[in-house]
Design a protein around this nucleic acid. Structure first.
Lengths: 245, 245
DNA sequence: CAACGCCCTTGATCTTCATCAATGTAACAA
DNA sequence: TTGTTACATTGATGAAGATCAAGGGCGTTG
């Protein structure tokens, strides 16, 4: 895990002018990229930053369009997907608070990003961000490490999509999501599900109905409890067994 | 496509001492990473390089082991896969001549790499390569761009695994492979298949039998011709339609 | 509060692909 | 040559998950 040492130091740098304790931007950035920055570099980042609030189901950016910005999700969550011409949809990931989008700095967006709920986003112009990187090689290095991690996650997802049963897919999904939430809210058993069953299905290569049936099955088996906002994991060992690598 | 301007200039730098026209190392590196290098940087690279020949079905490196090297495949091809404890296998990619492995520079290997045929590999110690990058930020930048491209390919593969039928999967696979061979041998219709049907199945989330049936179907429909060493694409338009994004 | 829409769940049936089994084919060795 | 082995193909059957259909919970809106 990344240390959060730089989280409270540069209070005044938050682009929206609030104290960090109130500012989701400053609060979460300690979780990922910005903890690698020196104060002067943070300042440079913040000069570029623009804080934007999106409503539910709004599009941050679309597949194939020219990439304009790098995004840091500071609150809310986002679905990332590709569409086939006939309407089939594959969700390639979900972005949670603290996650970055567009760090590969490619010219065009590889997928569409839509908010699942109201969301706050810290946006940096791609070109300016790219220039900053050229001036700060160690930041680029950090970025490259993050890209390697992302690639590794994508390959794990290939295993899930290609070689796991419906029940294993849902179990792996819940475990994976729980671990990501743990970094954000510290909970070891709660996994809020801001996305619909349809979204989960499009992420796992299943239909809504199958996702629903597998969730019901896991609940019947006392592995999880389904709550209005997501699930609580009753038997992580059982889920772990279903999703073992 | 990358230009090959630096392909023939630094002839003497080839680590195995042959002239470039005979040296698969020098011939292929123009295709990817090394075309971004200045002569002095190429020299630095070559000082690190070790040229190794592997036999068929040998392991280059294994999943979870400490990553020792960066690899440039100069001849032959390689399968990259992850295993589940119960033996299910997901191939996450195939490496062809000119491809690099281990450029993410992570501490541990994310997958196992095994040769499909006899293969020549140019190997660089990971740590030394990493140090070189720290000294050459523009090379790191180039690497990061390549990582972004790889991530994008991984996401395309997620769409194939999650949302395509067996026939579409096989068609996309053949088209994708043909495009990669085109960069190597220039052919627009030939797609050699150094991997077995089992390998293709483990790449596409299918069984051997289904792969075989779909190949037969495509051949019956006059979209491809099956040859001893691979396939010839008779009707690329039909295959394209099956694999349209 | 009633009506509507949206999402989730559940059941019945169908399709695709996996599984099981047999046969075919090419490379290689004795 | 024949036997052996590994891989590919083909057919018959089965099962996982998709599809089709209906109903239920819940928040929103008039």
């Amino acid at each position: 895990m990344l240390d959060s040492g730089s989280a409270d130091a540069p209070l005044t740098l938050c682009p929206n002018g609030k104290a960090s304790i109130e500012c989701s931007h400053c609060k979460v950035r300690a979780l990922s990229l910005c903890s690698a920055l020196e104060p002067d570099e943070l300042e440079a980042m913040d000069k570029l930053a623009r804080h934007v609030v999106f409503e539910k189901h709004q599009t941050l950016f679309s597949q194939s369009e020219a990439a304009e910005s790098v995004y840091n999700i500071t609150a809310g969550s986002v679905r990332l997907f590709k569409l086939l011409p006939d309407g089939r949809r594959q969700i390639v990931g979900f972005a949670l608070p603290g996650d970055f989008l567009g760090l590969s700095l490619s010219e065009r967006n590889a997928f569409t990003a839509e908010t699942l709920s109201a969301a706050s986003v810290c946006q940096f112009p791609r070109v300016a961000f790219s220039d900053l990187l050229d001036a700060k090689p160690h930041l680029l290095r950090r970025l490259h490490d993050m890209a390697g991690h992302e690639l590794s996650l994508a390959q794990d997802q290939m295993v899930i999509l290609g070689r796991r049963t419906a029940e294993e897919k849902v179990a792996s999904f819940l475990m994976g999501l729980r671990k990501r939430w743990a970094r954000i809210d510290g909970s070891t058993v709660r996994a809020p599900l801001p996305m619909s069953r349809q979204d989960i299905g499009d992420y796992l290569g299943l239909t809504v109905e199958t996702v629903s049936r597998m969730m019901t099955k896991l609940a019947r088996d006392k592995a999880i409890v389904i709550t209005p906002d997501g699930v609580r994991l009753l038997d992580p060992a059982r889920l772990e067994a279903l999703s073992e690598t």
